[in-house]
């Protein structure tokens, strides 16, 4: 597994673009998907060290993808992103095996610290 390879799953294209830029500058290789289905395709064909998943996606939610990753026995670390007021979801994510969760708004530098701490 390439521990420096990160998957971002987030339906906001601008978010993906900005976070990809930031993480690439910090020496990570980043792939992104804007929907759950395309994320699952990437997961099937790649080996990621870390997956950063938005909870709310157009076709499924981040916990569905988290479950899929964990059910495959993958060692990919999962960070779930939640919104203001979504604390209940964060707790559920941890129960399902998420390695960390971060609340939006995301400060890229703080997210980097979370990633490096995994």
């Amino acid at each position: 597994m390439d521990t420096n390879k990160i998957l971002i799953v987030e339906d906001d294209v601008v978010f993906c673009k900005l976070l990809t830029r930031f993480l690439t500058k910090n020496n990570f290789e980043v792939l992104d998907a804007q929907a759950g289905k395309s994320a699952l395709n990437l997961i099937e064909n790649n080996s990621f060290g870390i997956a950063i998943l938005d909870y709310r996606l157009p076709d499924m939610n981040g916990i569905d993808i988290l479950k899929k990753i964990k059910s495959q026995g993958s060692t990919t670390k999962v960070v779930l992103m939640t919104r203001y007021g979504d604390e209940g979801i964060a707790n559920k994510a941890v129960e399902e095996g998420a390695d960390a969760f971060v609340s939006k708004p995301i400060n890229p530098t703080e997210l980097l610290e979370v990633i490096r701490g995994l």
């Binding site: 987030e10 906001d12 601008v14 978010f15 900005l18 976070l19 709310r56 992103m81 919104r83 203001y84 939006k104 708004p105 995301i106 400060n107 890229p108």
Partner: peptide, 12 residues
């Protein structure tokens, strides 16, 4: 930059 301060909004 603060990403996704709310749905589809970022603070530059």
């Amino acid at each position: 930059m603060k990403l996704s301060i709310s749905q589809n909004v970022h603070l530059v």
